[in-house]
Amino acid sequence: MTRPENGSRQDAPLQQLESLDELWFQAGGTLCNLSCNHCFISCHPGNDNFGFMDLETIRRYLQESQALGVKEYYFTGGEPFLNRDMLQVLEETLAIGPATVLTNGTVFTPSSIKALRAISEQSLYSLELRVSIDGYSPQTNDPIRGEGTFEKALEGVRMLVEAGFLPIITMAQTWPEEENTRVFETFVTTLKETGYQRPRIKILPTLHLGMEAERSRPYSQAERISEEMMEGYDSNQLLCSRSRTVTDRGVAVCPLLIETPGAHLGDSLEDASGPFRLDQGACYTCYVHGAICSNIGGWGVE
């Protein structure tokens, strides 16, 4: 099958889809109750560039995914829990495999938490909830995520922990790398004080796309992967070697590039199983940091 080349850099390496281990859903589209100033796909309450995915569509891809041997299902946005179908989607997903939701933690209600608990308990598979909080205090988080979001997200974490979940807290690293240990340890203390006794924390690099390109800087032309760089590199580190992302309008190569022309590879998982040319700045972040999107990967502390 021939397909149009994405991007102009023909010298960038081609990455094959080695096996479809992770299937991502852009379940919340680009719609979000927050408008963080580092959001790499510039989500906000009015951004319907990508819309909510409906249950029927998700079902169709879940169905197709089984014969392909998908191992894990991920749901992201925007804010997936704004999607009214989300609980039903999770219930049906967890009937066939493990599910992970990336949420901002600010839209839980006691009744949604209770429903999540029930869905999780009746499944053989793990339901992981990943809550984004970008600082260890309102002073460090709120300038990025918005007024009052630290307290709100922490309340979300508190409710999840009370219901018996062990949420994974992800922090986008907007501070210098040398401060990772201090940030990590300060946050562990805060989380323990709120009742989360064995916090799981992942520190992730920011992606210089969308709002973050404006907040910090866009990618430079030098931040690209070349053929030589791939020699001896474990391509399993790159999400696109083992995953695809379904949106409300077709399948993209990865959750980072849904807005990149050329990163949409087809309508079905089958159609989207071809190779992708790694010519984007974000590819460079993946290359350097590896496995940033999956549940394991990212930075912890010794």
Binding site: S19, Q66, A67, L68, G69, K71, G97, P98, Y125, S126
Partner: peptide
């Protein structure tokens, strides 16, 4: 069968994935 250091935990290994391993 496909990777010496792949973790196969009960709660993250779907049955359809195992069936595919048996087939492949």
């Amino acid at each position: 069968p496909r990777r010496q250091n792949e973790f196969l935990w009960s709660s993250t290994t779907p049955t359809h994935f195992l069936q595919k391993l048996c087939k492949d």
